[in-house]
C-alpha cells in the first residue's frame, strides 16, 4: 500500500493531492484514536476500581480502637486518593489528545469545504467535469469527512462527560455503563468504518 500510494502521490497535484493526503490522515487519525481509546479504557477501569474500593463504609476502620491502625487506614485511603487523582490526570491527558485529533479532523473538513468552494468558483455550480479519482465528485469527499467528523465529535463529547463523572459516581452499575460506553464507542458505528474504507479505496490507498 505504501509504495503504490507514494507513487501515486507523486503525480497528484492541487485538490487531488490535498484530498488524497486527507484520506491518509483520516486513516492515521482513526488508528491513533483507537489506540488512545484502548489506553483510556485501561485507565478508566482502574479509576472505577479505585473509586469503588473506596466506597463501602470502612467498618473495619470504625471498629478499630487503637489510633495507630486507624492512622494506617487513613494513610492507605490517602494513598488510594492520590492514585485515583493520578489516574484521573492520565485520563484527562488522553482526552486532551483526543481533543487534538478531533480538531485536526475539523480542519480537514473545513479544508475540503474550501476545495468545494474553489471548484464552484472554477467550474460553476456543476463542479468539475471529470472526477478527481474514480467516481466521487468533490463534494462527496467533503460530505464523508464531515459525517466522520460529526461522529467523532459526538464521541468526544461523550468521553468528556465520562471523564468528568467517572471518579464521582459511587453507583457500580452507572460506573459500568461509563466503562462500556468508553470502550464500545456507541457513536462510532460500522457506517463510519464503511465510509472511511470507501474513502481509502476511492483515493487509491486501498487496492481496488
Amino acid at each position: 500500500m505504501e509504495g503504490s500510494s507514494s507513487a501515486r502521490k507523486g503525480n497528484l497535484t492541487g485538490s487531488a493531492r490535498k484530498l488524497s493526503d486527507n484520506a491518509a490522515d483520516w486513516h492515521n487519525l482513526t488508528l491513533k484514536w483507537e489506540r488512545l481509546n484502548d489506553e483510556g479504557s485501561t485507565v478508566a477501569t482502574k479509576i472505577v476500581n479505585l473509586r469503588l474500593a473506596k466506597e463501602p463504609p470502612k467498618e473495619s476502620d470504625l471498629m478499630l480502637e487503637d489510633g495507630v491502625s486507624l492512622d494506617s487506614g487513613e494513610k492507605s485511603r490517602d494513598n488510594s486518593s492520590q492514585e485515583l487523582e493520578e489516574e484521573c490526570y492520565k485520563l484527562q491527558d488522553i482526552v486532551n489528545k483526543m481533543d487534538h485529533i478531533v480538531s485536526k479532523m475539523e480542519k480537514m473538513v473545513s479544508s475540503e469545504n474550501g476545495i468545494c468552494e474553489l471548484e464552484t468558483f472554477q467550474y460553476g455550480v456543476k463542479g468539475r467535469p471529470a472526477p478527481l479519482f474514480q467516481t466521487w465528485s468533490t463534494p462527496q469527499f467533503a460530505e464523508v469527512s464531515s459525517k466522520l467528523c460529526d461522529s467523532y465529535k459526538q464521541e468526544l463529547a461523550l468521553k468528556h462527560t465520562i471523564l468528568q463523572e467517572l471518579a464521582h459516581t459511587a453507583n457500580a452499575d452507572l460506573s459500568m455503563v461509563y466503562l462500556s460506553a468508553w470502550l464500545y464507542q456507541p457513536y462510532i458505528d460500522d457506517k463510519g468504518k464503511l465510509l472511511l474504507e470507501s474513502l481509502l479505496m476511492e483515493t487509491g490507498h486501498r487496492p481496488l
Binding site: L158, T161, Q164, S180, A181, P186, Y187
Partner: peptide, 12 residues
C-alpha cells in the same frame, strides 16, 4: 449525566 446523548442506551 449521559442523558443528553441521543440514543445512547440503544446504541450501546
Amino acid at each position: 449525566p449521559l442523558g443528553r446523548f441521543p440514543d445512547l442506551q440503544e446504541r450501546l
